[in-house]
Design a protein around this nucleic acid. Structure first.
Length: 158
DNA sequence: GCCAACGTTGGC
DNA sequence: GCCAACGTTGGC
């Protein structure tokens, strides 16, 4: 079992959107970064758990728990010129980008804000807290995953 | 809207 | 293969 963190801008696609359609999974389209792609291709397994992180929004932070619901397969948006994530170098015979399906797993008792993540010593090495981090998919250690779940058990103090 | 930081691109 | 320029990300 591996653990992951998926970033999304909630005005584009939010944890609430994913919950609304549960148990139907959502194809995680649009990843166009090789490192994030390789995590999906090489390490992700159906049943892996992940945290859904909201970025570029009034309350950035971890919104809920999701699970990986498929093996990797080609991201169809790479072939569609109408898509923002269209890649003219990709063809169905030679796809460049892949995705996995994700599905709602559980709500958190309390969302965990970016500020709380930053002030938690156990999360000092969290990938998304590193300066200049821009990866939309990052691995979590089991300890990090469980530390964030533990944080979510209590309401923020401020 | 600003700015720092990063990945990608493309000329050489 | 280098590296400057560029576009994007994301918090504030």
């Amino acid at each position: 079992m591996n653990y992951w963190l998926f970033k999304s801008e909630p005005h584009v696609f939010s944890f609430a959107d994913l919950k609304t359609q549960a148990p139907r999974p959502e194809p995680w389209t649009g990843v166009r970064n090789y490192q994030a792609r390789n995590f999906m291709r090489d390490q992700m397994k159906p049943g892996d758990l992940a945290l859904f992180y909201h970025s570029s929004c009034p309350q950035p932070g971890v919104a809920g728990v999701i699970h990986i619901a498929s093996t990797p397969y080609p991201d169809p948006t790479q072939f569609l010129p109408s898509e923002e994530a269209f890649d003219p170098k990709a063809t169905p015979a030679h796809p460049i980008w892949i995705l996995v399906d994700v599905a709602w797993e559980a709500d958190l008792p309390h969302p965990v804000s970016l500020a709380r993540l930053r002030e938690t010593p156990a999360l000092a090495d969290l990938a998304i807290l590193r300066r200049g981090n821009r990866l939309s998919i990052t691995p979590l250690t089991p300890d990090e995953f469980h530390a964030i779940l533990l944080l979510s058990q209590t309401a923020p103090t401020s």
